[in-house]
């Protein structure tokens, strides 16, 4: 029995596929959901999702927070604020965005608390994207043969 994974943002359905396992970053730490998991609702933090595909390969996605719902039927629904597939990310652009977020945070840190909080979450989001994009690039450059 495999899991049906669905990743949805308010804008679109990012991914929907059958997998054997999913590793997600939750507020309580990183967890891996395997078939037969108990029903669970958990909140996510920005990070990288790893899908363990049927053929033994892995696929990566970046999320910026949201929810995970594991249904008793083996469907795993992820409601994300925003999400991208690794192949959609442009590493260079992501690095630039991360730099912008970092600068914004440094400027606002002691002046504007609201803006600083926004900058922190933007930075977290960009870091998650960057990690995902890097992982994808590394994977592409030296393909694992199995």
């Amino acid at each position: 029995m495999n899991l049906i994974f669905e990743l949805t943002t308010p804008e679109r359905v990012v991914a929907k596929k059958e997998v054997v396992g999913i590793t997600v970053p939750t507020q309580a730490g990183e967890i891996t959901v395997l078939p037969g998991h108990i029903p669970l609702v958990s909140s996510l933090k920005p990070g990288m999702i790893t899908l363990h595909l049927l053929e033994g390969q892995e696929e990566y996605l970046a999320v910026s927070g949201g929810f995970l719902e594991v249904q008793p039927t083996g469907r795993v629904i992820l409601l994300a604020d925003s999400a991208e597939r690794a192949e959609e990310l442009d590493l260079q652009k992501v690095e630039e965005a991360r730099e912008r977020a970092r600068r914004a945070l440094e400027e606002k840190r002691d002046i504007d608390e609201v803006a600083a909080t926004a900058a922190i979450s933007a930075l977290e989001r960009e870091l998650a994207r960057e990690r995902t994009a890097r992982k994808y690039r590394d994977l592409k450059h030296r393909p694992i043969s199995n």
Binding site: A28, I38, L40, S42, S43
Partner: peptide, 10 residues
């Protein structure tokens, strides 16, 4: 369902 961290938080 199990709620993490807690139902109220979620």
């Amino acid at each position: 369902y199990l709620f993490e961290p807690s139902p109220q938080d979620v």
